[in-house]
Design a binder for these strands. Structure first.
Lengths: 258, 258
DNA sequence: CTGCGGCCTTGACCCGAGGTCAAGGTCAAC
DNA sequence: GTTGACCTTGACCTCGGGTCAAGGCCGCAG
């Protein structure tokens, strides 16, 4: 015949922490019990019962904000609310599962941020004798393209694959990469730009924008951002790109700028 | 040849909000870009690239606190960390799924906080003519028992089921419930207590504590808390219980007290 | 009678990943 | 010159509690 349990005992009995019990009091989910002469809370079975109800619902994933209404609701509302919570939990589970799957796909070394097909292209670059710096630059460009212009990522990749099948293109690309160390005023840059533009014009079909992409309002800026990535690290490359674009425009090709 | 994107453009390009970009800056995940004359941040492709990296990992469920180290780590560490994150995500998914399943079991009207077998017993009470108040009191007692003394919940339930099979027990129980409206000094209470105790003693086997339960240090208090639930609402019932317990003790049965 | 350890009280701040609000500066267009 | 869209910083909010701090209450030991 005691006058009730202390908060520590009550918490232990229903399997929560003291802090949690006080939290429920503050949220109004469990009424404050009587206090004894020292100001200690003293719990009777009524409060214990309520505590068990709250803990059971909370453990089942019902947000505390809804537990109070739920326990005071009629059975129909009760069931409907539980259905809601059930659906929300399902949604969160599916979201987390999707994240985990994405993570799983990222989980194998180099294919960190890119799909398999893009990784294969990067490996071909290594086999073809491109240096690690060039491969790294291409990787960055591909990551950027995938994120900024996913709609044309595949055609971007196709153009790259196609040019790697052509030894002449490979040679020109290597020479273009070498240009990064040249002086920006080196006359070889203009010559190289002209050759590169001619080469590109032989594959005119590949230069066309995929349908459905042009009408995206900022498509051009996004595309330009990918094309000019890392350009600021080498003024010679920047000049080379500018000249190639000018040549292409002169030949009637639409090249996004700005 | 612009001097970079504003924060709103950069955020839109990589598919996050402005707030998120600034959040990444504050966490040191993406370096602050140069500012223009007005103090606006101006993003170049370098920062965009980094932003894409961070967003990709974050979207895959990597905690932001680990993203920074991850992007600066060697491939081995990279893979190991991703594995860790993968496992943590799996754990959270399993936890949420367990909650959802618990919720699903709670989701059917009356079987809110109790297993099916207990709900069946409550329905039998209704069929046997017990009033809603009595049924509600029994439900509370069962919920409390399930939470406080799960180890003996089954035997608790078995005792209840067994007594419902015996019409004489049912009659006595109804009479005990009627006692709640009597005066606490009514002499019929003593008489009823004696009859009830006799009845209980004919089922002595059911009174024994299940093995493995006695040695739990606070088992007795927990058990008493269930037994005396709601007693404070009727002094007559309290007196009846006390007398029954005294009778049982006199007959050599160990009854938890305090 | 005093100290010690263990329980209780309140209050304030912390986590993650940003969202929201407020007050003010900047820019381009009308 | 004014409007509306954008930018800046800063402070406070989420959810379910955990952790820390300063102090009161209790029983037991010397």
């Amino acid at each position: 015949m005691t006058d009730g349990l202390t908060i520590g005992q009550a918490a232990a009995f229903v399997g929560v922490t003291i802090k949690t019990v006080r939290h429920y009091h503050r949220l109004g989910l469990v009424a404050e019990p009587e206090r004894d002469g020292s100001g200690y809370r003293r719990y009777r079975s009524d409060e214990l019962y309520r505590l068990v109800q709250v803990r059971t619902l909370a453990a089942a994933g019902v947000p505390l904000a809804e537990v109070g209404d739920l326990l005071d609701a009629d059975p129909t509302t009760f069931a409907a609310t539980l259905d809601d919570v059930h659906d929300q939990l399902t949604e969160r589970i599916e979201d987390l599962t999707a994240r985990r799957d994405r993570l799983h796909r990222l989980d194998h070394g180099d294919r960190a941020l890119l799909p398999d097909r893009a990784c294969a292209v990067l490996e071909r670059l290594v086999e073809l004798g491109f240096g690690p710096d060039y491969v790294a630059a291409q990787r960055e460009a591909l990551v950027l393209a995938l994120a900024l212009v996913p709609a044309i990522f595949d055609s971007f990749l196709a153009r790259l694959e196609h040019s790697l099948d052509d030894p002449e293109s490979v040679e020109l690309t290597k020479r273009g990469w070498d240009a990064r160390t040249w002086d920006p005023d080196d006359p070889r840059i203009e010559e190289l730009a002209s050759t590169l533009a001619d080469k590109l014009l032989t594959q005119r079909a590949l230069l066309a924008m995929p349908t459905g992409f042009e009408d995206q309002s900022d498509a051009a800026s996004r595309y330009a951002m990918v094309n000019h990535h890392r350009e600021d690290r080498s003024p010679s490359i920047a000049r080379l790109n500018t000249l190639v674009e000018a040549n292409l425009r002169a030949a009637g090709v639409t090249v996004p700028s700005q």
